[in-house]
Design a protein around this nucleic acid. Structure first.
Lengths: 312, 312
DNA sequence: CTGTTAGCGCGTTCAT
DNA sequence: ATGAACGCGCTAACAG
């Protein structure tokens, strides 16, 4: 790769002039401007962004650490994020990490000058970040200063209200800690029940189950004593899993049991659409990018994103 | 962020000594080594990788341009790739691009010193790359020097052989140019037919159809004159789409028509598994990383990856 | 064993 | 208008 020295030599001017032509172009004699442009063309010169970064102390790289346990998801959110970032001349440095140790390790590697800022997405474990320029997206810390949250309480409340209006008053909830922030979900769940003057039945709630399959089985086994005609699950994958299991036990969906996904739908042909809360990945990306730009002006804070109700 | 100067000042040694301690640690007096380590600790100093990159002329960043038309896929391949790359101390710089212009634009932005190498994945359009350090993965150019190809001919041949052994001798093929390399697929398709002494029926082949739905409809409308009891499609998404359409026309799957996906399965609960060719993303990632390391030793070439047959 | 010097490629003074 | 010089943070070569 040719450098600015090669260009200045070929054009018969100094490095400074070359630099001037390529950046501002102001106050340069037309002759030398043309010569520089010509030399740039023949040498196919492009300024080395690393050298520029060293000087400007910013690389334009945004680290994105995906901490989702549930990796088998669509690229939807990465796509939306990348589109918004590249529109703002920023690069997306991708990293997957499961568990706190891996996240912190990735963070170490990205914050040595490589990335201007780092996003941590979907961590379902506590995380105390010692760095400034880190934004937590849909992570556990609710009150962290620099975080963008999905309003899971709102989602659960909306879900319950919808189900209740559909005549489903016995709503089971299977939401393991690893897939969603349980306190938030439970908060919304209870709020909806209260507002509809319905009793809270602890036997319908499964938050600590290691496996959602086991939780559902407990429900099915006790179905003579514990009634339920709706089921709230963390995401669409969980939904499909429980639907299969329900059908194996002769429960029709949504006839007997209405299954509701608290996060997203897959929109795949062949899969029947179920009611769900869906978060706009585009809105999320927009929020993130605006936050990144805000940071330059040293404004910060926590913001909350609410999902749309999808009705099949 | 503190610099090497801060450390050297605090430790009372020169920058060079600090550098020595942090890299080689060989031939440094124990006293000053301890002083440096102490200063590093208190200042929480970490070398700036950008400055190191400027000197070493390599950033450890690998650009990955995803040119898939079909974006709604799983993160599977990105996950596998990132895991392999980070294992080799390399960073994955992600970029989505549709169409040649966008790909070339992304390439321009990444090859200005930011990325040591660039991967272009899944481009279904011609692409003449003017740069050295670019590897084409599952792209159109079959004979490009630096490419890693999926053996689509082998996939189609395997698929047909399997279907024929299952008693399906009228195999329709819907493979639009945008989703797979048509020549390759057709090659394998024809080879299998020849080896099984079956006639080639042009009316079963749809390669240029703008929409696979239209193609299938042509087949269904002509079903009195053109028989088919198996259907080869590009990927699982296509498969689910055509299955829905087939069922709407009272064709049972796989009873009347066996649908075969030429690339991948989703393995989602709720979706019945169909026969398919599945490429190991882990094997692909391993191949890519080994090619990346080979390049350092200036060895190159084209290699081909074959997929596994998945039987439901 | 360690400090000094030079230079990676670039932008930005400060002179001229 | 433009060239020389400096510095971004770091490592490598040389000298002591």
């Amino acid at each position: 790769m040719s450098t600015i020295n090669d260009v200045s030599r070929l054009a018969g001017v100094s490095k400074a002039t070359v630099s001037r032509v390529l950046s501002g172009s102001r106050g340069v004699k037309e002759a030398s401007r043309a010569a520089v442009l010509q030399a740039v063309e023949t040498l196919n010169y492009r300024p080395n962004v690393i050298a520029q970064s060293l000087l400007s102390q910013s690389t334009g790289c945004i680290g994105v650490i995906c901490a989702q346990e549930n990796i088998n998801q669509t690229t939807g959110y990465l796509y939306a994020l990348e589109k918004h970032l590249s529109q703002h001349q920023k690069h997306l440095l991708l990293r997957f990490a499961s568990g706190k140790a891996e996240v912190m390790h990735a963070l170490e590697e990205l914050t040595c000058g490589l990335c201007d800022d780092v996003l941590i997405i979907g961590a379902r474990f506590p995380l105390d970040i010692p760095y400034e320029n880190v934004i937590l997206v849909d992570c556990l810390e609710f009150d962290a200063a620099n975080s963008i949250q999905f309003d899971h309480a709102f989602a659960a409340e909306t879900a319950c209200n919808y189900l209740i209006k559909q005549g489903r008053r016995q709503i089971a909830l299977i939401a393991p800690e690893t897939s969603c922030p349980v306190e938030q979900v439970l908060l919304g769940y209870k709020r909806a029940l209260e507002n509809n003057f319905l009793p809270f039945n602890r036997n319908l709630i499964f938050m600590d189950a290691t496996s959602s399959s086991v939780a559902l089985q407990v429900l099915l086994n006790n179905s003579t004593t514990v009634n339920f005609n709706a089921l709230l699950v963390a995401d669409e994958q969980e939904a499909q899993r429980v639907i299969t299991q329900l059908q194996a036990f002769n429960k029709s969906v949504p006839g007997d049991i209405m299954v509701f996904s608290l996060a997203g739908t897959l929109h795949l042909p062949g899969i029947p659409t179920i009611p769900a809360i869906e978060y706009s990945m585009d809105a999320m990306a927009a929020r993130i990018v605006s936050r990144l730009n805000e940071k330059t002006e040293s404004v910060a804070g926590s913001s909350v994103l609410r999902g749309d109700l999808i009705i099949p």
